[in-house]
Design a protein around this nucleic acid. Structure first.
Length: 850
RNA sequence: GGGCGAGUGGCGGAAUUGGUAGACGCGUUGGUCUUAGGAACCAAUAGUGCAAGCUGUGAAGGUUCGAGUCCUUUCUCGCCUACCA
């Protein structure tokens, strides 16, 4: 083995230790320096880091290191999203304390992250499950309670009757509890809610200012908030129940004359008059059977239960139509009631067909006459109102809707209304491993806030996780609390873990602040996060909750003026790998596979059959995961960083490939060999040339290009630039070159590479005696310009030749040069020139008569 | 059903925003060195043709001196979302 071989293990350990001991990446407020807050979504401490983390944190690290080199005061922290159910489950399985399990994982994963050589200020490390963190969160909760942004109401939950616990939607599989297998019931429970819908409009409006966010994410949030303009309409009811009116929300009041039934949700308040009706109860059961998720519902049949009630059309009081309970009406949107206009709404159409209700056409397309009739499909396009008495002739949609609302308002049958889809955020979780909600109840069930001086409300230790239900609920000694001499019972729900991640970026600004969740001066300096980096899967929930949390903290608080937490957002793609199965259709992991020639076998089993499946996002269930730690051990952090960035643009999915990984590793070795050659050259005594224009140009163009690529997250192109640089240098240093010039250019090149491969470049730099503080090289623009331009010569728009010319020559000169080019003779001889298109320093297009 | 995005060699992907399409890497082929090579190095690599050339960025039109890039129509794939009245 070559003794000169790059020993990544030694070098990487050395530099990681150096950065640690020198606190190279520690950060503090410095009002004289421009700050840059770079944040990656913090991980859940599930056990080990995965390739997704490697990609996420490498992207963030490249950016942070670049910003440091540019002279920014960079805040680049890391912490742990440490509360959550996996800890409870793992603890139960292994008979551990969730806290111990979590802290073990944190320590493992921290070591793994350190091996990646990340530029993280570890002094700011936080963990959401520490009392030191969640006590502040409890205080925020009480503040929001005081401001009226937190409230309690009854709401439906998925209830597992065997485990006596509430299940999240994703824990309900085919209508059954994932652990117990019991049929899940819908149960009404008192739950805590954050009043996020109060900020619907604000959350929507402020999206406009987030111009460093991917449009895709903004669109997703916009759809989620779901603003719609419409009208509330009151329908008078006739029948044998003491209800005289039902309110509906509609975006299409202009189709009221097409009214043929009124449909209400099975959970509508008037359902209480039907609780003793057997048929109604059967219908309700039928509704819940269809399930609550997936497209099964969308495709699912529309069913209804006909009441003996009649609804009166406010615009046409003679018309009375039946009232149905219907499975397609949602209780938590609008008023849980819709007016049915089958001709112009597909759902209403399907429903009307099934129950043989009238389908009356009241809108015609512009190119049809007034006899137009809807036959087999609802028409929801624009056009003209017909068959609607005083509304006839109005243009659909704008004019017709505005006019109709006007009429309804005048007659007091309804009013203009804006409706949002966004619902309040239910934050109650009937779980142990979360932040306790700092309230208690008296004998009458009245809510009493735990006094702020008594915070934190600590999670009790030594709970029985195997007992049924919420462990906190059975912990009687913990439940009892005395506040101001009164015996109370604690709230046993804990907060949704999304609450923890809604403000952690503030905590990073002042992680040691004891009296409050953050220090005002520190957040004023560091916030907002300049660049937030994470997966697209958080496009709605986490990012929307965080945006809400800022607005809620700032509500009635003049000192707090952060409107938006994340100025820039970048969403990286996933890491994918081929999938493998054996002949019995069982997944096989890549480690169990051997490739010989072009065939895949199970290791040590030449007779085995391996079916290679499509490349999919790495997941444990498909066993197509690659363990980052073993890769780092085999190839080193720089190689992994290089590879994870090299193959695809960061926002797209990347394909893990062993071959690619190996070639990145080899490239690191080649760079080290190159370094030895350059070092030898530097100690060479012969200085032949004074200046090396070609080298200077190359370096300046490279720096210019990489700077641009860094700004635009084109990190894969940076890697290409590194290869090009190698290809250039390995040839160029064979020439006689000036020593000082070489040193200067090489130093710049190493600096430009350093965000990607920091260990290698640090080692190379110190090896050539560089001891200063690194700075991002300033591009000398003179070197970006070419003195000799290679012009493209086109004849009639087709490229026919290249000619060399000096910079900035005029059209005439270039034309003359072109005319003297032999290759062009056959195109130009005996032809007359019609027109010339000349682009200075780039091309000339000569149009000739054929 | 609705929304968003993408289609470029055998593969991942470049292309200073309308100006030489295919940078860079992988793979493949040939060669050098070597006892050997799944090492290293050199060369070739969009298709077609001996060549000059011609054809080429999912398809069809259009604008332009010039289109991967802009416009219109269309096809395919991916992701998100879903009875939202």
């Amino acid at each position: 083995m070559n003794s000169n071989r790059y020993n990544f293990k030694k070098v990487e350990e050395k530099w990681q230790k150096f950065w640690d001991q020198n606190k190279t990446f520690s950060s503090k407020v410095d009002i004289n320096k421009k700050k840059f807050y770079c944040l990656e979504m913090f991980p859940y401490p599930s056990g080990k880091i995965h390739m997704g983390h490697v990609r996420n944190y490498t992207i963030g690290d490249v950016l942070s290191r670049y910003k440091i080199l540019q002279g920014f005061n960079v805040l680049h922290p890391m912490g742990w999203d440490a509360f959550g159910m996996p800890a409870e489950n793992a603890a139960r399985e292994n008979n551990l304390d969730p806290k111990d399990w979590t802290n073990q994982n944190i320590s493992t994963m921290k070591n793994q992250l350190k091996k990646l050589g990340l530029s993280i200020d570890w002094d700011r490390e936080i963990s959401t499950c520490s009392e030191d963190y969640y006590k502040h969160q409890q205080l925020f909760f009480l503040e929001l309670l005081e401001k009226g942004l937190v409230y309690r109401k009854e709401n439906y939950v998925n209830w597992d009757p065997i485990d006596e616990t509430v299940l999240a939607n994703e824990q309900v599989i085919d209508g059954k509890g994932w652990r117990s297998g019991a049929v899940v019931e819908r149960k009404k429970l008192n739950q805590w809610f954050f009043n996020i819908s109060k900020f619907s409009q604000k959350l929507l409006d402020d999206l406009e200012e987030l111009n460093e966010w991917p449009n895709k994410v903004k669109v997703m949030q916009k759809n989620w908030i779901g603003k719609s303009y419409g009208c509330e309409v009151n329908f008078k009811i006739e029948g044998d129940i003491p209800v005289s009116e039902i309110k509906c929300f509609t975006t299409r009041p202009d189709t009221l004359f097409g009214f043929s039934f009124l449909a209400i949700s099975a959970d509508h308040e008037i359902s209480k008059f039907f609780v003793n009706d057997k048929e109604f109860n059967n219908f309700k059961k039928e509704c819940s059977k269809t399930g609550t998720t997936e497209e099964a519902i969308a495709m699912g049949e529309k069913i209804g239960f006909k009441t003996n009630l009649l609804a009166i059309n406010p615009l046409n009081p003679k018309q009375k139509v039946p009232v149905y309970f219907a499975n397609f009406v949602l209780m938590d949107y609008g008023f849980g009631a819709v007016f049915g206009c089958p001709a112009h709404d597909q759902r209403d159409f399907d429903f009307a067909k099934k129950y043989k209700l009238e389908i009356k056409t009241v809108v015609r397309p512009k190119d049809k006459d007034n006899n137009y009739e809807v036959i087999d499909k609802a028409y929801d396009g624009d056009g003209i109102i017909i068959n609607s008495e005083f509304l006839n002739g109005l243009k659909v949609p704008e004019e017709s809707i505005i006019k109709t609302i006007d009429i309804l308002e005048k007659k007091k049958f309804g009013k203009k209304q804006i409706n949002f889809r966004l619902k309040d955020w239910g934050v109650s979780r009937q779980r142990y491993w979360g932040c306790p909600i700092p309230v208690a109840y008296d004998n009458d069930g009245k809510v009493i806030a735990i006094p702020k001086k008594d915070l934190p409300v600590k999670l009790p230790e030594n709970v029985d996780l195997n007992a049924k239900g919420n462990p906190l609920n059975t912990k009687n000694d913990w439940k009892k609390v005395n506040v101001n001499g009164k015996d109370l019972v604690r709230e046993t729900d804990t907060l949704d873990t999304f609450v923890c991640s809604s403000w952690y970026y503030l905590r990073f600004c002042s992680p040691k602040e004891n009296d409050y969740g953050f220090n005002q001066q520190e957040i004023d300096y560091w916030m907002p996060v300049d660049q937030y980096i994470g997966g697209i899967e958080h496009a709605i929930l986490h990012l929307l909750y965080s945006r809400f949390f800022m607005k809620a903290l700032g509500f009635k608080n003049k000192k707090f003026n952060i409107e938006e937490p994340f100025k820039g957002l970048f969403t990286q793609g996933m890491v994918c790998h081929e999938t493998y199965k054996d002949q019995n259709n069982n997944w096989i992991s890549p480690e169990e596979i051997e490739i010989r020639g072009k065939k895949y076998y199970k290791k040590n089993d030449p007779n085995s059959i391996v079916v290679v499946g499509p490349s999919e996002s790495m997941s444990k269930s498909k066993k197509n995961v690659i363990d980052p730690e073993s890769i780092i051990n085999n190839y080193g952090a720089d190689s992994v960083r290089l590879f994870i960035l090299s193959d695809s643009p960061p926002e797209k999915d990347v394909q893990w490939s062993e071959q690619g990984m190996v070639s990145s590793f080899k490239f690191i070795q080649k760079l080290w060999m190159l370094h030895s050659k350059i070092k030898n050259k530097l100690s060479d005594k012969s200085d032949v040339k004074d200046e090396d224009l070609e080298f200077n140009k190359f370096t300046n163009q490279l720096i210019n290009k990489i700077s641009g690529n860094l700004e635009s997250f084109s990190y894969n192109v940076i890697i290409a630039g590194m290869y090009e640089t190698y290809n250039f240098l390995i040839k160029h240093i064979e020439k006689n070159i000036n020593k000082n010039n070489l040193l200067e250019n090489y130093t710049k090149i190493l600096t430009a590479f350093s965000p990607v491969v920091p260990h290698l470049t640090s080692e190379c730099l110190i090896d050539i005696g560089f001891n200063d503080k690194l700075k991002w090289p300033i591009v000398n623009k003179e070197y970006l310009q070419q003195e000799n331009i290679e012009y493209v010569v086109q004849i009639n728009g087709r490229k026919r030749a290249n000619v060399k010319a000096e910079k900035d020559l005029n059209e005439e000169s270039i034309l003359n040069i072109a005319k003297n080019e032999k290759l062009l003779d056959k195109y130009l001889k005996n032809k007359s020139i019609k027109k010339i298109i000349f682009v200075k320093n780039r091309l000339i297009n000569i149009l000739v008569n054929e």
